[in-house]
């Protein structure tokens, strides 16, 4: 009996939270956009959210590409198929690792920072004070951050994949001695622009939307104390990572599973 009561209360809480999050989203994006004011604010946020995540994305992309080439080579060389190293690295990066790893890193690097920043703005009454100055904080604070996240993350994912493929080249070709021509040409013969690259970009746009939505909402909805903000930041990382992995499965099934 108690179990059912808990379940019911939990479900209601979740639904209520989802409702609040949807309200926030609509308030920020749908209601009366003001592009002239939005664009400079969004550029500033792209700097914070995107440019400052660039280093971690490039470094991880490089290493993941290198590790994949190393692992792939040792397996493929047994079958004399080391020529397929190129497509293996490229396909796994473009279809999966690019969007997913970028999303996870983005959630940890930029998502948590967004939540903490908005939470602190709430705690220091900056959001309230905007409201009292007759400026809608949803449009002034939340909307530029949402747009910046949605724009930046797919860009980061593209860079991640490109750097990863170069990293794979570095290890596979320059170090392990796979033929450079076959690395590229078999990759080119296998990778399809629409099926692989575009689907990867679509994935990362979906992830970007979900992560930024969760991050901004968790900050906006946080309890404005140090404890509340730290909880909100943790929840941002946990929820958005889980959401990314879950959505990845659904998207992969839709894109590649059913031919």
């Amino acid at each position: 009996m108690k179990w059912f009561i808990n379940l019911g209360a939990n479900t209601l809480n979740r639904l209520e939270m989802f409702g609040r999050a949807t309200f926030m989203l609509f308030g920020a994006i749908v209601a009366k956009p003001q592009p002239l004011k939005m664009i400079p604010l969004t550029i500033k946020q792209i700097h914070v959210v995107g440019v400052q995540s660039l280093l971690i994305i490039v470094v991880s992309g490089l290493f993941i590409g290198m590790v994949m080439a190393l692992q792939g080579y040792t397996i493929l060389v047994d079958y004399g198929a080391e020529g397929s190293l190129g497509p293996m690295v490229a396909l796994s990066l473009l279809r999966e690792l690019g969007p997913v790893v970028t999303a996870l890193l983005f959630a940890g690097r930029a998502g948590s920072a967004l939540t903490a920043e908005i939470g602190l703005m709430k705690a220091t009454e900056q959001l309230s004070s905007l409201e009292m100055m007759a400026v809608d904080p949803l449009r002034r604070v939340i909307a530029p951050r949402l747009w910046a996240g949605i724009i930046s993350m797919p860009m980061l994912a593209l860079i991640f994949s490109a750097v990863g493929i170069l990293g794979g080249h570095l290890v596979g070709v320059d170090w392990l001695g796979v033929d450079s021509g076959s690395y590229w040409s078999i990759m080119q013969a296998t990778v399809d622009w629409n099926k692989d690259v575009v689907n990867g970009i679509i994935k990362s746009i979906v992830f970007a939307f979900v992560i930024t939505w969760i991050a901004t909402f968790k900050g906006y909805d946080s309890i404005p104390t140090s404890e509340g903000i730290s909880k909100a930041t943790t929840e941002t990382v946990v929820f958005s990572s889980l959401a990314v992995l879950g959505l990845d499965f659904i998207l992969t099934a839709l894109m590649f599973g059913i031919e």
Partner: peptide
């Protein structure tokens, strides 16, 4: 309400300056 709020202002406890 937003129009009316332009005629009032609030000094918050923390100051609430935009950091």
């Amino acid at each position: 309400l937003f129009e009316v709020r332009r005629q009032m202002s609030m000094l918050f406890q923390s100051g609430a300056l935009f950091t």
